[in-house]
Amino acid sequence: MEDLVDGLLSGKVRSLAKAITVVENDRPGKRELLKRIYPKTGNSYLLGITGPPGAGKSTLTDKVIANLRKQGKTVGVIAVDPSSPFSGGAILGDRIRMQQHALDDGVFIRSMATRNHLGGLAKNTVDVIHLLDASGKDVIIVETVGVGQDEVDIVRIAQTTVVVMVPGLGDSVQIAKAGVMEIADVFAVNKADREGADKLFSEIRAMLDMVKGDFKPEIFRTVAVDDVGIDELVQGIFAHGDRVLTSGLVKEKLAQKAESELRAYLVDNIMERSTGLTLYDDVVKRIAAKEITPMDGVEELFTGLGMTKGEN
């Protein structure tokens, strides 16, 4: 464990990779490992890239990496792809688009399968971010799974969230819907050389006209495969980051992030403590037999765990 921590903190690739495996698989030593590195975190710029499947997230990520490397920044990437709900297996293919960086020491890319975690990220994504952060990466990019309308966990984690859109996916009502469209700090209209891109651009702009406040997201046109519009996009991303910094919103964002991390562990922990108990099985049976409601079942479980409900 000491070797792993020392190696990771001194930027050794294999130590970082092994540490990620410990964290991703909830292996023994995870808690100690995170405790050791946690004080060294908080220095990386966290960028989220999300959008529907096939929008070009991986290709865009590849070009953003290249751009950041030209600026001398080191980059960590977490590329999330879905697990099969049937076999539990996964094909992690985001990396195909990023292989030009395979031999660059300043870039570390890790693929993660969702393992049926909802929300657009893999279960232990946040902890893997901490490891990349502690290893000294200047920028960490999290590429979510291809999202639909409601996978918005990334917004609670990233300093800047880029929503990648492409023409041809729907009409203006789709643009107006709640969810993914609301979480963008920056929009990228990718495949902007295709028919319908201008229309999409103006529909997003019209939607944003109704957004109040200082944080109106900027929209950028990109053609990621041809490396078009990437400079502007990256500038826009950091411009957003600067705005957050100067507005004093940073504290709020950090607190939000801390809470979402705590909440995830709280839920897991309660599940872990409960599922082993005979009481748990008993409560499940009684709910199935319609003897008690699920809400009452929770009360019984908590009483059994010695957790009493406080006044509220």
């Binding site: 076999s87 297996g89 996964a90 094909i91 992690l92």
Partner: peptide, 10 residues
């Protein structure tokens, strides 16, 4: 994948 493994294809 169908056997439950996580496969990275490059």
């Amino acid at each position: 994948r169908d056997a439950g493994m996580e496969v990275i294809y490059t």
